[in-house]
Design a protein around this nucleic acid. Structure first.
Length: 426
RNA sequence: GUGGAUGUAGCUCAGUUGGCAGAGCUCCGGAUUGUGAUUCCGGCGGUCGUGGGUUCAAGCCCCAUCAUCCACCCCA
């Protein structure tokens, strides 16, 4: 019989990896907490229409990447491909944005049926941040400054660069789009194949093309920043000023478009060149129209999402994960003989009570030698031994495993005092 | 969805013109009875991704299929 394997593009995160995830999650939570953001937890499955109405009918995500299926009652459900739509839905459903401001975050798996690749998976994980009810550029700046703090916290600030742009209002985009299409149609022959296709489906995305010929052509194309009016201009300028004053460096990239239909005004991406072709590690923007589009009262909103797999890949590439996150026990307790084992069980419990240290008790038998070997492999700083001698004398043997100090026999009372003093030095 | 590369032990990988399936690491046991991380010896461990085909004989050649990786596309 064929072995059952995980679904393509959906990965197990193994015990060796989970400490890295926990480390990253904790760092992010700490930074979000420092800005007063609250966590929201949402279902993974939503009605299909929610995503169709928010992300945009003609985007690749909705057209061909959603995990959509029929519920038993015939409803069309979809595994969420991103979090913003769910977050907006939840806020509306519970009145969270009614006459009030919200700063929210969430974490969890997203699903897109794409061809897997480095940094791109069918089940992937995002930490998303969304804010509601604030229309000025101050909140845009706060979000970006917050992400910059996170990169510093993680030690990766040198590895990422901020790309910033404004998409203006829908009307401004429409005027620009018309002129852009007109220009590109005159040069349609010179465009790469993908851009010719995009010209019909989503012309703004031609700006994103990696094709050198297309990019050269765009140099003489209409420039979007010539199409934005005073309000959009001021919003963007103020954002830039706030970032300048905060010391956050950025590159204005007028060709940064973003794939989701709901963005307007501010958009940004943090990009690294260390991960191959999936270099966007964090991205977001303003989506003032979305809440209303989904049936709520018009509410300004800005948010972003980080790709956890990509951040972890980057942390590992740059060797930024502290070695200590992999250490899971402080003390490895061993016993020789049934009576000694009974006593060691008691001692281990007492140590956990009194010192708060992580004590792993050897189970599963094996020779003394093999117990020692496991003690070493466990990464514990100390081994704790209990045999006939110790049992008879009412002591335990404390053996340093990581330093050259001698092992010694001490009473349990001395042991707790000793361990407390050793660990309080660190 | 398109293109390229790769699938051999739990992991990393050898495997010659087609001729008995290997190494290192891990794991278990041993090198005078209760001392690990270095050494030495022994052991466990494989439907060679899967299904067909060619052949006296296939890990190796051919076809299909699945998966992984990389790139395109798309995006976090």
């Amino acid at each position: 019989m064929a072995k059952i394997k995980a679904i393509r593009g959906m990965n197990d995160i193994l015990p060796e990896q989970t400490p890295v995830w926990q480390y990253l999650e904790k760092q992010v939570e700490t930074v979000l907490g420092a800005y007063g953001y609250s966590e929201l937890r949402m279902p993974i499955v939503e009605q299909t229409d929610l995503f169709k109405r928010s992300i945009g009918e003609v985007t690749d995500i909705v057209e061909k990447e959603m995990y959509t299926f029929e519920d038993r009652n015939g409803d069309s459900l979809t595994l969420r491909p991103e979090g913003t739509a769910s977050c907006v839905r939840a806020c509306e459903e519970h009145g969270l944005t009614f006459n009030q401001v919200q700063r929210l975050w969430y974490m969890g798996p997203m699903f897109r049926h794409e061809r897997p690749q480095k940094g791109r998976y069918r089940q992937f994980h995002q930490i998303g941040v969304e804010t509601f009810g604030m229309q000025g550029p101050d909140i845009d700046a706060e979000l970006i400054i917050m992400t910059a703090r996170l990169w510093r916290q993680l030690g990766m600030e040198e590895a990422v660069t901020l790309h910033l742009n404004t998409l203006g209002t829908a009307e401004e985009r429409a005027r620009f789009k018309a002129d852009l299409v007109e220009y590109l149609k005159q040069h349609e022959e010179a465009l790469d194949a993908d851009s010719q296709r995009r010209l019909k489906t989503n012309p703004l995305r031609v700006l994103d093309s990696k094709d050198p010929g297309t990019q050269a052509l765009l140099d003489n194309a209409p420039h979007f920043h010539d199409y934005i009016d005073a309000e959009s201009r001021e919003h963007f300028d103020r954002l830039c000023t706030l970032l300048d004053r905060a010391g956050v460096a950025y590159e204005v990239n007028a060709r940064l478009v973003r794939g989701l239909d709901y963005y307007g005004k501010t958009v940004f991406e943090w990009i690294t060149d260390k991960l191959g072709s999936q270099g966007t590690v964090c991205a977001g923007g303003r989506y003032d129209g979305l809440v209303e589009q989904l049936g709520g009262r018009a509410t300004p909103a800005v948010g972003f999402a980080m790709g956890m797999e990509r951040l972890i890949l980057l942390l590992e590439t740059l060797e930024l994960v502290p070695e200590s996150v992999h250490q899971k026990v402080d003390i490895y307790a061993m016993a020789m003989g049934d009576d000694a084992q009974v006593e060691m069980f008691r001692i281990a419990e007492e140590l956990r009570d009194q010192t708060g240290l992580r004590v792993q008790l050897h189970c599963g038998g094996g020779s003394f030698k093999s117990q020692m070997k496991k003690a070493d492999r466990s990464g514990a700083r100390f081994g704790l031994l209990m045999g006939d001698d110790e049992l008879a004398n009412g002591v335990v043997t404390l053996k340093p495993l990581r330093e050259t100090a001698e092992q010694k026999q001490i009473t349990l009372k001395e042991l707790t005092a000793e361990l407390v003093s050793i660990y309080s030095e660190d």
